[in-house]
């Protein structure tokens, strides 16, 4: 290309600088600034911002609610990973390997909740769990299991597990598609070879499908973990607001409550730093645990 160095750099600056300034101002600066805020006691009014060193972090360690929020977050992570991966894998295998005519229909339906708003999902499921009108309790009564009926979201022991089902319901489609993409890339000849060797369908699944779609499984698990740790508070906020009696608070919803409801912005930022560190650590550990040499036959 015939253009001077100066022209090239002007064009480059035109392409990169405005976008980067926006990204720096609205993403990078707030993140680092959040780190900085965590060393202050601050209720939002600019005059009473007081540097208190690590005091927020000491409060964090002593705060009896914090360990529960962490446990709740990881409870959601683990149950979602197990629930979504098992169902998504089952559906992905069924829709690719079993030559079902109406497979595209299932694919389209199962994916749809992935693009629904969390608000709509949350309110819909709040209604499904409604103690008087809800589908769950009506269903249990219909089956003659009245004793099992309970105010699901109002029960301290059941509120958090009740949040798992909507999350799985809303998440499965995407991971099913990712796994289907992986299975579609596995050459038919492996299955033919396995069949000649006398492997039944179950053995084929364990020995052929699973190892060969391992990269997709790994990405799916990581993605579920990241999106849950970074976003589980949204469904919590919509469905329970952290209640009853803090039994469903996750780290993010507790941050919201501390910062934007009780105006402890410094302490809120400290919780944010904890979320950042925990989610980065979790991803690193997971990447180490899930490493497995690429299988090639």
């Amino acid at each position: 290309m015939v253009q001077s160095k100066k022209q090239k750099y002007t064009f480059l600056a035109f392409c990169l600088v405005p976008t980067f300034i926006m990204f720096a101002v609205f993403t990078l600066y707030p993140l680092f600034s959040g780190l900085y805020y965590s060393f202050f006691d601050w209720s939002g009014a600019s005059q009473d911002k007081e540097f208190i060193g690590l005091a927020n972090y000491i409060t964090l360690i002593k705060d009896a609610i914090i360990p529960n929020t962490i446990i709740h977050d990881y409870f959601l992570v683990i149950t979602k990973v197990i629930g979504i991966m098992i169902l998504a894998m089952f559906f992905a295998v069924a829709l690719t390997q079993l030559k079902i005519k109406e497979a595209p229909f299932y694919r389209i339906v199962f994916f749809f909740p992935n693009i629904m708003s969390v608000v709509v999902i949350g309110i819909l499921w709040t209604f499904i769990y409604n103690p008087n009108l809800g589908l769950v309790n009506s269903g249990l009564e219909f089956l003659g299991l009245e004793n099992w009926a309970r105010p699901w979201l109002g029960d301290e022991n059941w509120a958090l597990p009740s949040l798992v089902l909507p999350s799985i319901w809303a998440g499965i489609g995407l991971f099913m598609l990712m796994l289907m993409g992986g299975i579609a890339n596995v050459s038919k000849s492996y299955y033919e070879a396995a069949e000649i060797d006398g492997a039944n369908q179950w053995q084929q699944f364990w020995k052929v499908t699973l190892p060969l779609v391992w990269p997709q499984i790994k990405i799916s698990v990581l993605y579920i973990v990241i999106t849950t740790l970074n976003g589980s508070f949204i469904i919590v906020q919509v469905m329970t607001g952290g209640g009853p009696n803090n039994s469903t608070h996750v780290m993010g919803s507790y941050l919201y409550q501390q910062a934007f409801v009780q105006y402890n912005f410094g302490y809120g930022a400290t919780i944010g730093v904890m979320i950042l560190i925990l989610s980065l650590l979790t991803v690193l550990i997971l990447q180490f645990l899930l490493r497995r040499d690429k299988v090639e036959y």
Binding site: L12, L16, F20, F23, V25, F26, T27, Y29, P30, L31, S33, G34, L35, Y37, G44, I226, L229, N230, F233, G252, L255, Y256, A259, F260, F265, G268, A269, G272, V273, I275, L276, S279, V283
Partner: peptide
């Protein structure tokens, strides 16, 4: 240009960072 890989990595890693920490300063900004 020098740093194009780094810039790309910086942008893409934005997908993995929990933005909830940034929302407090963003509020005041």
């Amino acid at each position: 240009f020098r740093g194009s890989k780094l810039l790309f990595t910086l942008y893409v890693s934005g997908m993995m960072i929990p933005m909830v920490l940034g929302w407090i300063p963003l509020f005041f900004l």
